[in-house]
Design a protein around this nucleic acid. Structure first.
Lengths: 201, 201
DNA sequence: GTGTTATGGCACACAGTATGCCATAATTCA
DNA sequence: TGAATTATGGCATACTGTGTGCCATAACAC
């Protein structure tokens, strides 16, 4: 059961592929819509029949992959952060992220080389989810807003470095780095600021 | 002894002020050179007699402030990272940074709202300096490249959040957060990976 | 005061975006 | 298979913003 016209599917696919290919060659903001349509072998006029602008096409390209990651990575819950023995779980979060990045490295490169504002909107979404999950942990003198912001952007920085360096380490090793540099310190801070939690440090 | 023509000084100052004012109102890439010259009350043609493009003007605006920060913040040396009792020093590094940001918050906002590529070039410079200072610490299984990249971008994320949130905490509190979330974990990782260093954990 | 130089305002070429129009080709569905 | 529908290609066009050439004028340095 085909819902959309085959021509539409073909055109959209060509435009998506063209944007990905071009982003791997040059900076996102140096790419023109004319180049995209030429590479996709599609009429210039046709672009605007599907997307309002370049960012709109990019969102379309990233949408399914980002939703996949969202389902794959449950944001850290209060239980995870508070349970003293949860090393394995945070660690796996990191590994899962780096594995997903490796599987879709072209798409992640597209995202990371796109405009600042788009990355920020994706991150804002992730941080909001994290904050919601951490909301129940109200600890005086500790801002869950800072914590969520720090974890999300620090993880992004690790991913960005990894991709820019042509992924010299395995997802497992990167998971270990992210655990030691990001997850563990955040968890330790929660423990140290809240005397009521069971301490095992 | 005035070296440059007063008219030149006046024009450049007007253009710099206009860019700062406009950046606080809207996104950097939405600002046109026409707007800048109108706000500065300078002829459109005159802009190109001083700067090749918008980024060129922005670099000029940020240059002196970034050089000031560079002198203020010595990058972490191996001694600092390795000395078990250096908490006070890392802590002060963070405080100094947040104090400088507070003093020049408008300029930092301009930088953080500018194009991705400019922020990246400033960060690359900082990371290079860090790596050079960490170069003597060769520990098997621990990448100083990751460590330098992580520290620099994590600190930037904290600064960015602080500015976007209208600086709700003092530079001292932000210094404490940066120590606990960034400097201390990096230092601990070095200790744990190198059995030859004196451990006090 | 005089020679020098920065500026302003004009015109212009150019690149890229975005839309309207219409003939044509591809597709869907009966 | 054939008719109605719909997406596409190509053309012209308006618009915005960049970047440059030219020249009279005003501000400056000495």
């Amino acid at each position: 059961m085909e819902q959309v016209d085959r021509r539409v599917r073909r055109t959209r696919k060509s435009l998506e592929d063209a944007l990905i290919a071009l982003t791997l060659e040059k900076e996102y903001d140096e790419i023109t819509i004319q180049e995209i349509t030429e590479r996709a072998d599609v009429g210039y006029r046709t672009f605007f029949r599907h997307y309002s602008d370049k960012d709109d096409l990019l969102k379309d390209v990233l949408n399914s992959t980002m939703m996949e990651l969202r389902d794959l990575m449950s944001p850290p819950t209060p239980e995870m952060l508070v349970d003293p023995d949860f090393k394995a779980a945070d660690f796996m979060e990191g590994v899962v992220l780096f594995q997903h990045v490796k599987e879709h490295c072209d798409l992640y490169r597209v995202l990371l080389r796109s405009e600042r504002t788009l990355v920020e909107s994706v991150m804002a979404f992730i941080i909001d989810e994290m904050e919601e999950n951490l909301g129940s942990l109200l600890i005086e003198g500790l801002s869950m807003e800072i914590l969520a912001n720090h974890m999300a952007w620090s993880m992004l920085a690790l991913v960005r470095w990894w991709l820019d360096s042509e992924m010299p380490y395995s997802p497992e090793i990167m998971g270990e780095y992210s655990f030691r540099l990001v997850f563990k310190p955040a968890r330790e801070m929660i423990f140290q600021m809240n005397p009521e939690l069971p301490t095992n440090q």
